[in-house]
Design a protein around this nucleic acid. Structure first.
Lengths: 202, 202
DNA sequence: GAAGTAACTGAATTGAGATTCAACAAGTTT
DNA sequence: AAACTTGTTGAATCTCAATTCAGTTACTTC
């Protein structure tokens, strides 16, 4: 046995894995197997299974977003922040569970209002994150923005999203490296900053 | 009754509609209802229902691609070709069936090799289409490309894809107009061409 | 116009997954 | 330590979609 709150956390992780593996039409038993319990145990904690699915997706999305916020929190140089944010926004492996979850969601969002809202909110927050980086860089003179910060931010997030899908679909030439390169090419042009690795660290 | 080849065409259209409406986990009966037949009739023509689903997706994708090729076939000015191609690559309505189909596929492609191949092929062909437009524009001196044509082409297709998902998810501020504007902003910067509507026609 | 064939239906069967629930196990309380 | 509460199982049941198929309809051919 486990305390309800702890078991719920387990179930959310199991649901995330199961959705990443089987898609949004995942079976209750697949989640149960992943969690090492029976379907009855899940129904006990989530009489409405949809609630678990939504919660799992919300939590996965939150993690994806917060990981990047954390990673750049200690960085001060705008160019470095931009580079790191971009490199963390693209999945480096077609098996990446967080991104698989997001892809599964994306396909469902056209039909499911709740998932649409979740993804919209994630998109907007990511745009905000990029805008903040761009605005600071522009204010300190590091960036010479060629377009409004919001335009650049929206396009950067869009590029990340799209290349995430391509990498998940195992595009033969569109690797992680290539995707990051393509997005950086846009970022360079839009910010008027070379965004090179050299000169900023190591 | 109907001739097999004709009925199959009907079933493919019905399957496209049903997938757009219910996702890739669509029920056989939902397709049958859409086609106005019973599930038995579908099994008669497609003993392997997956074959029908793949065929429906392939055909939908083909139509999406060919519609744009047709639309620009009569245009000669590179800037106009680019503008029109972009404006047709973004869904103008969250109910657009072709794009709904593509979104549903995208979510599935991470788990399904066949769908992954289909989408990869579509992406590559779209990139080719843009590259051709860019190369011609550069050769005639209309465009002053700031990046390799392939980089621009890949990013343009990526932006289209991503904004397609946002529009399907009914993002409140990311409308069709706004998405086209954002992509055009990138295209302007990358081609060094204003891409204005004025001066080319009307 | 009878025989043959292709397309299709509707009812019956099968099967997979969701749901219920009585019983049980592991703590808690008093 | 008895009574209670919480979490969980496993078997039984319910539900619904896929599948099968015998029979029917419409067209073709000779």
């Amino acid at each position: 046995m486990a305390k309800s709150s702890e078991r719920k956390a387990d179930l959310i992780v199991a649901a995330q894995r199961a959705i990443a593996q089987h898609g949004t039409s995942v079976r209750l038993n697949q989640i149960a197997d992943m969690a090492g319990v029976t379907s009855g145990a899940i129904l006990y904690h989530y009489p409405e299974v949809d609630d678990l699915l939504v919660e799992a997706n919300r939590a996965g999305m939150e993690r994806f977003y917060n990981e990047r916020l954390d990673a750049i929190s200690s960085l001060t140089d705008p160019a470095e922040r931009l580079r790191v944010t971009i490199s963390l926004g693209v999945p480096d492996d077609p098996a990446d569970e967080d991104v698989r979850l997001l892809c599964a969601l994306g396909g469902e969002a056209a039909r499911n209002t709740v998932y649409a809202l979740l993804l919209t909110s994630l998109y907007d927050r990511q745009v905000g994150m990029y805008m903040s980086i761009l605005d600071v860089g522009a204010a300190t003179g590091a960036f010479a923005l060629q377009q409004p910060a919001q335009t650049i931010a929206r396009n950067l997030v869009a590029l990340e999203d799209a290349y995430g899908y391509r990498i998940m679909a195992k595009h033969p030439t569109l690797t992680y490296q290539e995707a990051v390169h393509l997005i950086l090419e846009y970022a360079r042009m839009a910010t008027g900053h070379p965004l090179d690795t050299e000169g900023h660290h190591a």
